[in-house]
Amino acid sequence: MNTQPIKAFLPLFRSWFDTASLADKIGAAGLEGSSENILAELDLGPMVEAETSLLNHAPSNAVEAACLLEVVRQNIADAGRSDGLDLRAIAAVQQWLADAPTGATGGQSVERLLRQAQV
């Protein structure tokens, strides 16, 4: 998990999001066997690399957390990732949400929040 801020996180996310939106708009699944499928001609390697970088990033603010959840949401809609990066991204967002109110870090975030709620 990359805990250092990615200076280009939002531009990287925007590129990934725009590419995913394009694929969604043209109905990539319905065009797979068609000669009109422009996605077949595209090199989606950079999108895959961007997605991997995004999912390995620990959010440092609410905007990054929401963006990570969008990547995960779209992946889950497509049956999820087999490498578990979706789960790591959710854990990173959960950790950030748990740490944000108190500034505490480490440990089991949900357990810590439950203990704090009992006090």
Results as ranks from 00 to 15, higher is better:
D18G: 02
A117E: 11
I38Y: 06
W96G: 14
E111M: 09
E36H: 14
S60N: 12
I76Q: 09
N56G: 11
L39D: 13
D24Q: 13
S60Q: 12
E32Y: 07
I38L: 10
Q74S: 04
E51T: 13
A79E: 15
R88A: 08
A100N: 15
L31M: 14
V71N: 01
T3W: 00
R14D: 15
Q108L: 07
E32C: 07
V110M: 03
S34F: 02
E51S: 11
I38F: 05
R88Q: 10
K7N: 15
N75S: 07
R14Q: 14
T105C: 02
G30K: 02
N2Q: 10
D78V: 05
I90K: 01
N61D: 15
A91P: 00
S53M: 05
L113I: 08
E111Q: 14
A23D: 03
A23W: 01
A92F: 06
L10A: 14
E70A: 02
L85F: 03
K25R: 05
S60A: 10
K25P: 00
L12Q: 09
N56R: 15
E51M: 13
F17V: 10
S60K: 09
L54N: 05
E64R: 02
R88N: 05
M47E: 14
L69W: 02
H57N: 12
G84S: 05
A23V: 09
E64K: 01
A20I: 09
A62N: 08
R73F: 04
G107C: 04
L69V: 11
L85S: 07
A29F: 04
C67R: 01
L68I: 08
L39A: 14
T19H: 02
L12F: 02
L69P: 01
L113H: 02
G103T: 14
P59Q: 06
N2G: 13
F17C: 06
A92D: 04
A104S: 13
T52F: 01
P46V: 08
N37D: 15
I76S: 02
W16Q: 03
P101C: 00
M1Q: 13
A29N: 08
Q118D: 13
V48W: 02
Q74Y: 08
A79K: 11
F9P: 10
E32V: 15
L87N: 01
P101Y: 02
S82E: 15
L42A: 14
A50P: 05
V119A: 15
V93H: 00
S109W: 01
N2A: 11
Q108R: 12
G106S: 06
P11G: 06
E49Q: 13
G84C: 07
V93W: 00
T19E: 08
P101I: 01
A117P: 05
V93K: 00
E51V: 08
P46W: 06
R73V: 06
H57R: 06
Q108H: 10
L54W: 01
D86T: 11
E51N: 07
G84T: 10
E41I: 05
I90L: 09
G30P: 03
T102K: 04
E49I: 06
D86E: 13
I6E: 15
N61H: 08
A79G: 06
K25W: 05
